[in-house]
Design a protein around this nucleic acid. Structure first.
Lengths: 107, 107
DNA sequence: AAAAAAAAGTTTGTACTACAAACCATACTG
DNA sequence: CAGTATGGTTTGTAGTACAAACTTTTTTTT
């Protein structure tokens, strides 16, 4: 191995970190969904303290990336949006955790 | 303690994470400066693989925040810019590390 | 039963930010 | 002395996070 690769690997790798996950608001969403397996819009809103508009935007981004699924149901008469991580989302989040943990360990 | 505070503390806290540090390019700069005590512009540029313009912008932000000092010297005839963390910068970076580690531990 | 307010989101407008291209100043080089 | 290299800074732009405003349906008030 070159003299730079091993020690600085985890530092330079940061430039390739998944920014869709790294963003704090979305990191909260990932954290909640990864421990809960599924959650609804209002629950996420309360747990994260994000506004509706902001949460909605982040959800759309994650859905477009294929990281979460969005199911729109009705509970009685009221709409109910259920979010869950996809396999891809779960895998990417685990990879993110690994990368950032390695970074912290390198300090 | 309330039922939410302890478990979700580290999750909701993410919304208050220091974004000046959290940004990947600057995280690289912090990582390098925290282990090296001082470094010059070109060294940082090579280690991080940031472009000159981009690195320059990030440095200015960190300097304005009081997280780093910027000393412009001459080595022989050539300009030489030396960067170092301030106490404040070091403290904030440690706080950041702690917060993100707690987050990872909570998953 | 009409009007008003609430619930559950989505869309739109804006202020900010990361980035590279273009620029600047000085120093070498053929 | 023209051209290129060195060591940066400034400027322009595309993208992003966020909240305000809007939409649609339902519930409550009068």
């Amino acid at each position: 191995m070159s003299s730079e690769t091993a020690l600085n690997g985890s530092i330079r790798d940061l430039s390739k970190i998944n920014k869709l996950i790294h963003e704090p608001a979305r990191l909260m969403i990932f954290a909640l969904l990864s421990t809960l397996e599924s959650a609804d819009f209002l629950f996420l809103m309360r747990q994260t303290a994000l506004t509706q508009g902001n949460l909605s935007s982040h959800i759309k981004k994650l859905e477009n990336a294929g990281y979460i699924t969005v199911k729109k149901e009705f509970t009685g008469k009221r709409p109910h949006t259920i979010l869950a991580l996809t396999n891809s989302g779960r895998t990417e989040f685990l990879g993110y955790q690994k990368q950032i943990q390695e970074f912290l360990n390198s300090l």
